[in-house]
Write a protein that binds this DNA or RNA. Structure first.
Ligand SMILES: [Zn+2]
Ligand SMILES: [Zn+2]
Ligand SMILES: [Zn+2]
Ligand SMILES: [Zn+2]
Lengths: 166, 166
DNA sequence: ACAAAGATAGTTATATTATAACATATTCGT
DNA sequence: ACGAATATGTTATAATATAACTATCTTTGT
């Protein structure tokens, strides 16, 4: 896959998302000399299983299922810390959950649309949004270090289909 | 006080902020038939003691100090729930903390600058930011219900004073 | 190959944030 | 005053996250 359009809310072949993400992760970590260990890659894969942000304990449960040994919280949180540091995932603070980043190679803020109905999240990459925030900060004399925009509502699918599956 | 300019990061007579906020809260609750009880008002006052967002348990501790009886978490969380419902306060999800709203009468999204150094928070009211988000949502076919923007960095004071007090 | 240093993972315990469930008290409309 | 609705008190627990220590694995210099 080449240029990526937002597609969390669009019907698509999701296996491409997963393979792209894993490939990119391997490439990035190799280049940076960061170690994408088995656990870290496993957590990244679990996060990428869908476009719905997943909580740490949901990941923990899924890891535990696949493992013979018990899995403790630090195992998951350390993997998440690594993936966050490498910017391979984003944290959605409002729901204490984590989602894969489709553009890990390209530095950017954490801007999301989050569907209240189906739970899916889509990254926003709007120059207009970014620039207006940058401009507001400049005018306020504020030196931005990081930012997160979490927009909740109904995705195109869920707003038209009156019914719900949640 | 009449038209309010952002002032969390500016030297100002903070007692005006507090009295304005309490006055507005009383007026709004009266108009809505909502009951701003003693506890709720106390929590609102504690939140307004500064422009630094406060966590639930910090509020709990302060309430406990002023009270003879023990204070339990639900007491604080219920008051916070009420204040959030009435939009008298905002929640800053990234730091699990709460901050007073200087414009509770006027419906608006939760957009903040948050200083990593001094801890203060200032509400952003930028048409440009709001409009760009609205536009991005429309283009994506996304129906916005709520939103939060949390921009972290250094406020004008802290970016110039090289030294830190944190 | 080997040992030392550093990084990763296992393990146990605990901190922090938030809510459930039920009992009691207060307020409000009649 | 009465009953219904709302608010508070109380106890317990859920959900999220980290601290601290041990053991293992990986890298690096010799
Ligand atoms: Zn996909
Ligand atoms: Zn991203
Ligand atoms: Zn003030
Ligand atoms: Zn506000």
């Amino acid at each position: 896959m080449t240029d990526k359009e937002p597609l969390a809310f669009t019907r698509h072949n999701h296996s491409h998302c997963v393979s792209d993400a894993l490939q990119a992760a391997v490439a990035i970590c190799t280049e940076r000399g960061a170690r994408l260990t088995a656990i870290r890659q496993q957590v990244l894969e679990l996060i990428w299983q869908s476009h719905k942000p997943l909580g740490a304990y949901a990941l923990l449960d899924q890891l535990a299922e696949k493992s013979t040994k018990p899995v403790a919280p630090p195992t998951v949180y350390r993997a998440l810390d690594f993936l966050l540091e490498q910017k391979l995932i984003h944290r959605i603070a409002a729901i204490n959950a984590f989602i894969g980043c489709p553009h890990p190679d390209h530095n950017h803020a954490s801007h999301f649309f989050l569907c209240d109905d189906c739970g899916r999240a889509e990254e926003i990459h709007s120059k207009s949004v970014s620039n207006s925030i940058k401009k507001a900060a400049t005018e306020a004399g504020f030196a931005v270090q990081s930012q997160s925009l979490e927009v909740f509502g109904l995705c195109p699918d869920c707003r038209t289909q009156d019914g719900h599956d949640s």
